[in-house]
Amino acid sequence: MSAPLLSLERLSVSYGRVDAVREVSLSVPEGAIVAILGPNGAGKTTLLSAVMGILPCRGLATFRGVPLAGRPVEQRVADGMSLVPEKRELFVSMTVEDNLRLGGFRRRSTAGFAESLDAMWALFPRLAERRMQLAGTLSGGERQMLAMARSLMSTPRLLMLDEPSLGLAPLIVKEVFRVIAELRRTGVSILLVEQNARAALDLADHAYVLENGAAVLEGPGEALRRDERVIATYLGIRAVAS
């Protein structure tokens, strides 16, 4: 088997004296969808932020075999990583189209720029309808779509999605997961942080469960879907049962 696209070894992240992520090791193979599950406050968002270079961390992280330490966020974007953050972080006072164009900022003068833009309009027809609207006027679902499209404009090898279904109505959640499934076919690898465990496990090739900053469970998506411990992690049923 070839080396994984992203590999983390004993990665830890601290806020002051608090360890938000404790020695997590995981890997994302080329072309795979890997899910990170866990209850609120388990350290999932922190983990993604550290991988993207927004937060400092300890341990070894490599992307395409190259250590990530010392590389600033924008360099990681150029390397082929992209993060769709939990809060979307859109340019709210700018149009949908400008948001997308800025997503491809680093490849603004390449030949493929216009094609990527067209590909995004095709992948997200809702956005095409609203291309001249300000991003701040979009609905929650549309914002999530725009955030994903903006990320994809940089033609990433690894797309990291932080809670893409957060706060969205069930119908729109389905739409988001449809797009994720579609992206798999384009060959982009995906690291998915999700609360919606069932939908994520339906899609993921492999999944990790985080609790209190540490990886407590891992396995193929299929297997975890039937694991009672996943449910217990979320609802604390163990405590009552014991």
Binding site: K174, N196, A197, R198
Partner: peptide, 9 residues
């Protein structure tokens, strides 16, 4: 349970 675990997509 559904709110916490989500429904299958």
């Amino acid at each position: 349970v559904e709110a916490y675990l989500g429904s299958a997509a």
